[in-house]
Simulated scan of single mutants.
Amino acid sequence: MACHILRSDRFQGAPLLKSIFLSYRIADSAFAVTEISKQMAARISRTHVFRDDDSIELGALYADRIRAALEDCETLVAIIGPHWLEAADGHGNRRIDNDRDWVRFEIRTAYERGVPVIPVLLDDTPLPSPGQLPVDIRALAQSQFWNIRHRTLDTDISGLIDRLAPDSRPHAGDSDASTKGIHPTQINRADKGSNVITNNGRDQDVRIGNARRGRL
């Protein structure tokens, strides 16, 4: 179960957000950020969710698009994994201590604009303490956060979206929302004469031991 610390009274009953900006470190959150972006796009619409890999057009100037998205967003979601804080540059210095670090710049810009910053902590990563953060983003340490864990990934992401956009519904054509309810073929095995029971009403590849016995 996710640790649902985030309070969202200001969002309850509100219209869909104009834009959500996803801030993350590539090497720190690869398992989660793609899925977060995909599910948000399905519920809120891709045009309302900014993730650099999904949202920056070929040939566009990266820095200009990041700045424009930060000026447009109404919420910044800071995805924090186990190496987010201590990620180092080629000289062994913490990236977060460099005022030109993109992650620091994104969070600082949001605070300067008065935009809510929501820390999303991956797999029990602790929220950084004030003394671990540069002064210009130290408010992050006092922010109410949301947990996302690998073993409950879909449920945790869905819960986050429910808080941010409680009236949202899947949008046809965004992500793979249109494939919901389609069950993939499953491979089930039964040993020593035990029974195999179908559980999704679709074709299943059934094996007893190592021998294939046909499809149900």
Rank of each mutant, 00 (worst) to 15 (best):
R51A: 14
I26T: 15
T185P: 10
R213H: 12
I187K: 15
S29M: 03
P15C: 09
G181A: 10
H4E: 08
H183A: 14
E86M: 07
D72Q: 14
L17F: 04
D205G: 03
Q132V: 00
K18N: 15
I79C: 07
L140W: 02
E35F: 05
H4F: 04
S19H: 11
F145N: 11
N98I: 03
D162E: 14
R169T: 14
K192A: 14
R149E: 11
R95E: 13
F21R: 02
F31M: 07
L153Y: 06
A32G: 03
R163P: 04
G173P: 04
D136R: 03
R151T: 10
H150S: 15
G90I: 04
A69P: 12
S143D: 07
R25D: 02
E35N: 07
D52W: 04
S19I: 07
V49T: 10
C3R: 11
P170E: 06
G214E: 00
S129V: 01
W102D: 08
P130W: 00
C73H: 00
Q186Y: 05
M40C: 15
I197A: 12
E106G: 05
R138E: 08
K38D: 15
L16E: 12
S129R: 04
M1R: 06
P15W: 02
D123G: 05
D52I: 04
S8F: 09
H150Q: 09
D174T: 02
A190E: 05
I148L: 14
K18W: 09
L121F: 01
I197P: 09
G173H: 01
R94N: 11
D191M: 08
A88S: 11
C73P: 07
R46L: 11
R189Q: 10
Q39M: 13
Q39N: 07
G81R: 00
T109P: 02
Y111V: 02
H83L: 10
R100W: 12
R95W: 06
V120S: 04
I197N: 10
W84V: 00
D28S: 06
N188V: 08
T179R: 14
S178I: 14
D205C: 02
I161V: 12
R149G: 10
A30V: 01
P170R: 08
G181P: 09
A60G: 04
